[in-house]
């Protein structure tokens, strides 16, 4: 199904674990440095609003083309669990409706998704070229000097960006299900 930014709470709450989605609109990249900074009280840079917005755990490869425009040449998700200490608070504080990443997140983020009405969207890790094809434009970049290119906030236009809902706003997590099932299967084989 297609979802577009800005996301509203009612639409997000209808999403269920296992739903394949295609995202169109604006996403902001943010990873380790940005999450730590925001969780410790840092302000969003002027011009950035995450209300109804999407944070993408991604450190893209971005180059300047001959005309001096930024171009994203590779942009898959990075492992999300590193942001677990910060993500829940950031979702609630800034009104984030969706987080895109890989590998899933844990209880605090799941609780924040339920409380605030947000979802975790799993993109295919490593699929940097396929996903870069769905990024049509670099709108802006923030904190480039402060955090370096992979850790900066890149504001990106995306069209039909593919992902799967693996943590929904109803307290369900595919990651918990798969872990528990695989743990039980392993126990039979030891």
């Amino acid at each position: 199904m297609n979802i577009s930014t800005p996301l509203n709470e009612a639409a997000v709450r209808k999403l269920k674990v296992g739903d394949a989605v295609e995202i169109t609109g604006v996403v902001f990249t943010g990873r380790d440095a940005v999450h730590k900074y925001l969780a410790k009280g840092g302000e969003l840079p002027a011009g950035v609003s995450l209300t109804g917005g999407i944070i993408y755990h991604c450190g893209p490869v971005v180059i300047k083309d001959d005309a001096g425009n930024w171009k994203v040449t590779a942009a898959g998700p990075t492992t999300s669990i590193r942001e677990e200490p910060y993500q829940g608070d950031i979702i609630k504080k800034f009104g984030v409706r969706a987080v895109i990443g890989k590998g899933g997140m844990a209880d605090r983020t799941l609780a924040a998704c339920r409380e605030a009405g947000a979802v975790y969207l799993h993109a295919i890790g490593g699929a940097a070229q396929v996903l870069a094809e769905h990024i049509t434009k670099v709108r802006n970049v923030y904190f480039l000097e402060k955090f370096g290119s992979p850790e900066a906030i890149w504001e990106l236009d995306v069209v039909n960006f593919p992902a799967v809902v693996t943590m929904d706003a109803n307290g369900n997590s595919l990651h918990t299900e798969v872990f528990e099932r695989s743990q039980a299967e392993l126990a039979k084989r030891l």
């Binding site: 490869v61 590779a74 990075t78 490593g126 699929a127 940097a128 070229q129 094809e133 992979p150 593919p162």
Partner: peptide, 25 residues
């Protein structure tokens, strides 16, 4: 299966464009 399909497509695209398979090089 759809994840594996995206992976397969990604491999072909990276080779064709001579760009990193994954952004984390």
């Amino acid at each position: 299966a759809s994840a594996m399909k995206i992976i397969e497509h990604n491999i072909a695209l990276a080779k064709q464009k001579s760009q990193p398979i994954c952004q984390d090089t």
